[in-house]
């Protein structure tokens, strides 16, 4: 009797709770999805705004082949995209060996002690240092200290230091993902540390490291702040000397010491002008810049998910 009364009293109540729970869950999922939609529509708005804004220049081939100019309709991005490519060459050449080397050292060589701990905290902190501070480092040390000048070399160097933590961290993650038994197999055959790393660990971690490197370089391509800080000129009406020449030794390094501009700086320069005509150029440059970074990020994301599927 008592039981029956109780269940009669509580049962409807329970269903009420379950229903209410279901409602809150629905609301919660709804909020999550709407945040997602807002974020994605921002991305879409950025892309559409740029394309619409820059369309008249985007469809004009001169835009890609002309130098910057005081006349908005004649201004182009040739010095900017060439500069971006050359600066990225320097950045990759410095950041990849240093970053991968540091990652390998921390993961495979370093003893677990306070020095390693210190380096680790340091890398993690460097990853969070604002990019403009790297610009101050370059201004104070590379330009006024070492006298490297406002050159492609300086810009490549500062961007390399900026993305160093990204490459170190992704190298470490890639190496950590390699199963222990692969390493034991190599050591079991008598390989020393360097043989194990060179012959087995690095090849197995190759794609992971590549992914991190691409993400890092994509970040470097879009960075303007540290390069503005070194005082990079924004009106460059010439191209740096070609890295390849027809006479021996076929390669020259004069371009490293050349003044330059790069895509994000060219865009910043145009967007800061009061005349609306230049804003069209800015938008068009932005589309090209975004194409570069989104393509690189897309490749990296594809690589990562492709990899994960392979491992599974």
């Amino acid at each position: 009797m008592v039981n029956a009364e109780m269940s009669q009293a509580t049962l409807p109540n329970l269903t009420g709770i379950v229903d209410a729970n279901r409602r809150t869950d629905l609301v919660m999922a709804g909020i999550g999805i709407s945040v997602l939609i807002v974020a994605m529509s921002l991305l879409a708005a950025v892309v559409i705004d740029l394309i619409v804004g820059g369309w008249p220049r985007l469809i004009n081939p001169d835009f890609y082949l002309n130098f910057p100019s005081r006349h908005p309709l004649q201004a182009g991005i040739v010095s900017a995209w060439v500069g971006t490519i050359l600066v990225m060459l320097v950045t990759a050449g410095i950041a990849i060996p240093l970053g991968v080397g540091a990652g390998v050292y921390l993961e495979e060589y370093a003893a677990r002690n306070w020095i390693t701990d210190f380096i680790e905290i340091n890398v993690s902190n460097l990853a969070g240092v604002p990019s403009i501070i790297y610009g101050l480092l370059a201004l104070g040390l590379f330009i006024h200290g070492f006298g490297l000048g406002e050159t492609i070399l300086t810009a490549g160097l500062v961007l390399a230091l900026l993305i160093l933590p990204v490459i170190i961290v992704s190298t470490r993650e890639a190496i950590r993902g390699i199963p222990l038994d692969l390493r034991e197999a190599a050591y079991g055959l008598g390989a020393d540390k360097w043989q194990t790393v060179r012959l087995y660990v690095l090849p197995a971690a190759r794609s992971g490291i590549l992914t991190g490197t691409i993400v890092g370089l994509a970040r470097a391509i879009g960075e303007a702040a540290p390069v503005i800080t070194i005082g990079a000129l924004t009106f460059i009406a010439f191209l740096p000397p070609s890295p390849i020449q027809s006479s021996p030794p076929f390669i020259n390094f004069e371009w490293l010491e050349s003044p330059f501009t790069i895509m994000p700086i060219q865009m910043f320069n145009w967007v800061s002008r009061p005349q609306a005509e230049f804003h069209i150029n800015a938008a068009a440059a932005g589309v090209i810049l975004m194409l570069m970074t989104l393509a690189m990020n897309g490749i990296a994301i594809w690589l990562r998910y492709h990899l994960r599927r392979q491992i599974r």
Partner: peptide, 19 residues
């Protein structure tokens, strides 16, 4: 979301000022 993170900040600057 990672793509969102990959947009150069100068582009966000343009977008903020003019849109």
């Amino acid at each position: 979301l990672e793509l969102l993170e990959g947009v150069p900040t100068v582009v966000y600057g343009y977008f903020t000022l003019l849109f």
